[in-house]
């Protein structure tokens, strides 16, 4: 994709969106609601006309083609199953459009439904299935035609948490097995990180940052990425002797910066130890099951610290604590503000 653009009225919904997806890659488009990610997807499928830019698949321009000739499968957030057709006919629809013979269609439909474990539901109507089953039918329908690329628009957002996790794993296994190039739109950062080889973080119609899930989480360049991918503590630090010093006096490595910097510290990287002379004080304790979260007041800041495991200490409100951030778990935010 090169410099995609799309505006509705005076508002530019998608601006200068360029992305190259490798063959067989699983890429997630991650961003808050209304950031333009669904619009990007609909432009790729050809449902929404392109406002500018070009789209190529395997070196061939496709942006001038109508959707039916693009060979791009799309799974809708609403699933968009045809209510007047059985599951089998839904899945076979695309094959019928390709002019495949009836016997071959039947075979392919059965094989595809087996992939999503729904073969015995072929003669049911979509309304007779649960949400999770409908979602799998929508997926089967999109992959039955063996598209060049598969687009998934928040496919799991209408399901409950437990089912979502299970289908997420199924989806990843299926994508690996088929090797279909996949673009996945979501606003759920854990979904994006769990599924994708690369995550594209979007905000207000623009790409903020692109990277592997681990890189983006642990060393984002943009503050938006840092904040969108989970909780983050922003700690101002002053340069001193070639390093940086935190408000509680800890020296960390710097890169020779001259002005004040913002350190970004994930809650799990902020270690607390009870210390009567510590600079911080616990203001809130929350037990979350797998983790314990402490809120610490230090130098006018309110920071979050998380510890996990059975041995994680639980310190009562008012406890004085010493804070420390490991040298390798911290990073600098690019623009600070």
């Amino acid at each position: 994709m090169q410099s995609l653009r799309k505006g509705f009225g005076a508002t530019l919904v998608v601006d200068d969106f360029s992305l190259h997806v490798a063959d067989g890659e699983f890429v997630a488009l991650l961003g808050p609601s209304g950031c333009g990610k669904t619009t990007v997807m609909r432009m790729l499928a050809g449902i929404t006309p392109l406002g500018g830019g070009e789209i190529s698949v395997a070196g061939q321009r496709i942006d001038h083609l109508p959707p039916e000739r693009r060979k791009i499968g799309l799974v809708f957030q609403s699933y968009a199953l045809f209510p007047h057709m059985t599951v089998g006919r839904n899945v076979g629809f695309g094959l019928q459009m390709q002019g495949m013979a009836a016997a071959a269609i039947k075979q392919r439909v059965t094989a595809t439904l087996e992939l999503v474990d729904l073969a015995r539901f072929a003669s049911r109507y979509p309304r007779e299935l649960s949400g999770g089953q409908q979602q799998r039918v929508a997926l089967a329908r999109a992959i039955a035609t063996r598209p060049q690329a598969l687009l998934l628009d928040e496919p799991l957002s209408n399901l409950d948490a437990k089912l979502r996790e299970q289908l997420r794993d199924d989806l990843k296994a299926l994508q690996r097995r088929l090797g279909t190039t996949t673009l996945y739109v979501t606003h759920d950062q854990s979904e994006a990180m769990a599924l994708a080889d690369r995550v594209v973080v979007m905000n207000a119609g623009r790409i903020v940052e692109i990277g592997a899930p681990r890189d983006l989480y642990q060393s984002p360049r943009e503050r938006f990425t840092a904040e969108f991918l989970g909780h983050i503590n922003i700690v101002p630090a002053e340069p001193q002797n070639g390093g940086l010093v935190t408000p509680w006096g800890q020296m960390v490595q710097g890169k020779g910066e001259s002005g004040p910097q913002n350190l970004c510290v994930r809650p799990e990287d902020l270690a607390l130890t009870a210390d009567p002379d510590g600079k911080g004080q616990i203001t809130e304790v929350t037990f979350l099951g797998a983790e314990v979260e402490h809120r610490v007041a230090v130098a006018g800041l309110s920071l979050r610290a998380r510890a996990s495991g059975r041995a994680a200490p639980v310190m009562p409100v008012g406890t004085r604590v010493a804070l420390s951030v490991p040298q390798d778990a911290q990073f600098l935010a690019a623009s600070g503000a």
Binding site: R70, F76, A142
Partner: peptide, 26 residues
């Protein structure tokens, strides 16, 4: 739902087919 004709298009149906197979029956 506008998603239904759109879904049919991505599956290879042209406008006329979408009308006969999706919109008209519904």
């Amino acid at each position: 739902s506008t998603d239904l004709p759109a879904a049919a298009r991505t599956l290879g149906a042209n406008r006329a087919t979408v009308f006969w197979r999706i919109e008209l029956p519904l």
